[in-house]
Design a protein around this nucleic acid. Sequence first.
DNA 1: ATTTAAAATTACAATTTTGTCACTTAATAA
DNA 2: TTATTAAGTGACAAAATTGTAATTTTAAAT
Lengths: 223, 223
Amino acid sequence: MQKILIIEDDEKIRDELESFLNKHGYNAKALINLDNVVEDILKEKADLILLDINLPYMDGEYVCKEVRKTSNVPIIMVTSRDSELDELISLNYGADQYVTKPYNIQILLAKIIGLLKRNQNAGINQDKIDCKEFILNRSKSIIEKDDLKVELTKNEISILYFLILHRGSIVSREDIIEYLWESEAFIDDNTLTVNMKRLRRKLEEVGLDDIIETKRGQGYMLK
Amino acid sequence: MQKILIIEDDEKIRDELESFLNKHGYNAKALINLDNVVEDILKEKADLILLDINLPYMDGEYVCKEVRKTSNVPIIMVTSRDSELDELISLNYGADQYVTKPYNIQILLAKIIGLLKRNQNAGINQDKIDCKEFILNRSKSIIEKDDLKVELTKNEISILYFLILHRGSIVSREDIIEYLWESEAFIDDNTLTVNMKRLRRKLEEVGLDDIIETKRGQGYMLK
DNA sequence: ATTTAAAATTACAATTTTGTCACTTAATAA
DNA sequence: TTATTAAGTGACAAAATTGTAATTTTAAAT
């Protein structure tokens, strides 16, 4: 269950929000004591923050800025002032959305859903890259095709990853060499050919023949 | 340079936007012919879409929905109607932001910057994982801290990645072993200790001392 | 303070990865 | 066709990675 942290000093609004979100399947929690807001927010490790701009002792914009220094958690600023300046400051301080009170609760919910969804796709979980015909599992350095698996070495992963990034376009040998070996100018041109051969052999092991096309004089292309 | 695609039928606004964004260092491009909008948008492979809601033959909301079926590109809906219903539909169709004309150009820019920044962390470009104190560059298998770099081996990457996934929580030695060696039941318990030692040494090389805490009897925790 | 077990350290050998060499094959131009 | 050059192949040695063993250090429990 996704956790949403509410920072709001108006008790009525706070409770309403909390129960509304809980009803919609979230684990909503309000922070009551605001003495160490920033610290507490970070401790809570929520999936999303609803942050009121007008807090009793410090302003929400400052809180937002401080949280951003150490966290990428999605933040929605909530305020009663419909001020363009406030919105601009909030966005520049790293807030993801700005909502003015009295807010349309459906719109707020849509914004929450959108941010949470995006953060799931994103996040750190981009572990497996689905390339339709096969899957590149980066943390395990393997490619999986149906039930077949094969381990790739660092160079093989790098080349394949670079090709995936530019899938469908031709990438020049120079670009690949630059990507793999950066400034090591001494690298033999043939070194790439050999590494390419090794990658292709591994791909064939899982039945992925000829997915890397040679474009003579131009480079390679992942089909 | 990041590419922004503008879909807007009012020529004046379109040109203004284009030159404004180009001035701010983006590669802005407007789609003139709107006969195959959805197809063309996908072909362009832009980093962000500015999409007008009132298009001549079809409405922007529909376009947004169609694009979302095959792409996660950030979309900002632009409209002259300040309608809560339109905003709600747009958000539900997968738009990331909703801006009403005449818009505050600074706010629009802030939204663009925010979305692009967030999407860099995500996407297939989740190549570099920003861990605040350091960056884990997965395709190159290195960690970067300030100007220092150090290469990691496959095991080292795996352990670090697993710790990052559970950052702030204790992960048991068993879980790490399971993650690295799966079913290879013959693996010595000490093997993990040694690999952990190696990872820590590499981390120290870039000044990241003591970021992996030992929780005796429980496991390890990335601070 | 002593005991015990978990974790750290160091060293070493087996295995894997990597770059280069020498040579072959294949595509394009003359 | 022939010449030319880009790309592919197989083999080998140097370098890096990895698992294990032997030993030491450290933290908690008695």
